[in-house]
Amino acid sequence: MHSNDKISIQSQDFDFNCEYQRLRKNNSTDGAVVTFIGLVRDFNQKGHVTGLFLEHYPAMTEKSLSNILIKARQKWSLGRITIIHRVGQLNPNEQIVMVGVTSQHRQSAFQASEYIMDFLKTQAPFWKKETSENGDNWVEAKQSDTDKADSW
């Protein structure tokens, strides 16, 4: 892992502006900063969602995220990378994930950001349980997400 990289698995919310500034601070070599913020939706194919609970195994999850980051660095010339993923109880419209990538050029930053998200959705060991008016159910990976990750 690069010394300016950040991986955080946390229950508390994060401050996007603070994280964006960390990617930029003392970084005059990179001309591109790409960020993605994922939010908890209030719906899915089964109806209205009132909450989401995420579980994980800490050592396993951190290793998985680190491996995703390393693979992204092998594919593109990147500056800094930030991956923040929240766990615990989350409500609709709360921030759940942030990916930030810097690079000298925008194409690498865009592609690496998308790559990281595709693999977070399919390879990172998070278990999501949705709460709805119809009860709780565990969320499985979508075939479309798996197909997208396989395309890399």
Rank of each mutant, 00 (worst) to 15 (best):
R106G: 07
D136S: 14
I70Q: 08
I37L: 14
M60R: 12
D13T: 15
D42T: 07
R73S: 03
N134E: 09
R86N: 02
T35V: 13
F119G: 00
T122S: 15
Y115P: 07
F53V: 05
T61Q: 04
I116M: 11
N91P: 00
N134S: 13
R106C: 10
K25L: 13
G79E: 11
D13I: 14
K75I: 13
T29R: 01
I116F: 11
D15Q: 11
Q12E: 15
Y20G: 04
E19D: 07
I70Y: 06
M98D: 04
S132Q: 08
F119R: 15
N67V: 00
L120E: 06
D118G: 04
T29G: 01
I37Q: 11
D5P: 01
P58I: 03
Q12W: 00
P58G: 08
T50Y: 00
N4K: 15
L65C: 02
S8M: 13
C18F: 13
L54C: 05
I68C: 03
D150R: 12
K129P: 02
Q123H: 14
S8T: 11
T122E: 08
S113H: 05
T61L: 05
E19L: 15
G88D: 07
Y20K: 15
D150F: 07
E94I: 10
M117N: 05
Y57D: 10
A141Y: 00
Q107Y: 08
D145L: 07
L65I: 00
T122Q: 12
A149L: 02
P125T: 13
L54M: 03
Q111A: 13
A32H: 07
G31C: 06
K75S: 12
S77M: 05
K71C: 01
I84F: 09
D118I: 02
Y57P: 02
D42A: 08
H2F: 12
A141L: 01
T61I: 09
I83Q: 03
S8Q: 14
F43D: 10
Q74E: 15
P58K: 04
E140Q: 08
V40H: 09
S3M: 10
V97D: 04
